[in-house]
Simulated assay, not measured.
Amino acid sequence: MRITLLHQHHANPDCPATCRQYSFMEKLAYRHHITLVATNAWRRLRLQHKYSWAPAGVALHECKASYSNKMGVTARLVAFVSFAFCSFVKLMRLPKTDVLWAVSVPLTVPFVVAQVARLRNVPWVFEVQDLWPSFPIEMGAVKYKWLQKLLYKVELSLYDSASHIITLSPDMTAYVLARGIDPTKVTTILNGTDIEKTDAVTADEVEALKVKYKLKGRQVVLYAGTYGRANDIPTIMRSIELLADNPTIVFILTGTGYYEPQLQHLAQRVPNLILLPPQPHDSVFALFTLADLALVTFNDLPVLASNSPAKFYDSLACNTPVIVTNPGWTKTFVVKYNCGWYTPAEQPELLAQTITEVLANPEELKRAGLNGATIARELFDRDHLVKDVEAILERVAKR
Score class of each variant (00 low, 15 high):
residue 338 N to E: 15
residue 62 E to Q: 13
residue 326 N to M: 15
residue 2 R to D: 13
residue 46 R to A: 13
residue 318 C to Q: 02
residue 274 I to Y: 06
residue 145 K to C: 04
residue 28 L to M: 15
residue 304 L to C: 03
residue 180 G to W: 11
residue 399 R to E: 13
residue 77 L to W: 05
residue 133 P to S: 13
residue 114 A to R: 05
residue 399 R to Y: 05
residue 54 A to N: 07
residue 250 V to W: 03
residue 292 D to V: 02
residue 397 A to K: 05
residue 185 K to S: 13
residue 226 T to V: 14
residue 333 F to K: 00
residue 116 V to G: 00
residue 363 E to Y: 07
residue 295 L to W: 08
residue 40 N to D: 15
residue 205 E to N: 04
residue 116 V to Y: 02
residue 340 G to W: 07
residue 158 L to D: 13
residue 208 A to C: 08
residue 94 L to H: 03
residue 291 A to R: 04
residue 138 E to A: 08
residue 21 Q to S: 14
residue 375 I to E: 08
residue 312 F to Q: 04
residue 11 A to T: 09
residue 274 I to G: 04
residue 115 Q to D: 00
residue 255 G to T: 13
residue 361 N to L: 08
residue 109 V to L: 04
residue 234 P to E: 13
residue 253 L to H: 05
residue 367 R to Q: 14
residue 155 E to C: 04
residue 395 R to M: 12
residue 128 V to M: 06
residue 303 V to M: 04
residue 180 G to R: 09
residue 160 D to Y: 11
residue 250 V to E: 08
residue 252 I to Y: 01
residue 187 T to F: 07
residue 26 E to Y: 00
residue 332 T to K: 14
residue 167 T to M: 08
residue 192 G to R: 08
residue 367 R to Y: 04
residue 294 A to K: 05
residue 7 H to F: 15
residue 125 V to T: 09
residue 295 L to F: 07
residue 207 E to P: 00
residue 165 I to W: 02
residue 74 T to K: 10
residue 360 A to K: 06
residue 189 I to P: 07
residue 320 T to P: 10
residue 339 C to F: 09
residue 179 R to M: 09
residue 36 L to I: 14
residue 109 V to N: 01
residue 214 K to C: 11
residue 208 A to D: 11
residue 311 K to W: 10
residue 370 L to K: 10
residue 375 I to D: 03
residue 120 R to T: 06
residue 83 F to K: 01
residue 215 L to H: 03
residue 117 A to L: 13
residue 202 T to F: 12
residue 50 K to Y: 00
residue 60 L to H: 10
residue 63 C to R: 00
residue 365 L to E: 01
residue 5 L to H: 05
residue 363 E to S: 14
residue 346 E to K: 03
residue 311 K to G: 11
residue 7 H to I: 14
residue 177 L to D: 00
residue 164 H to N: 10
residue 156 L to V: 09
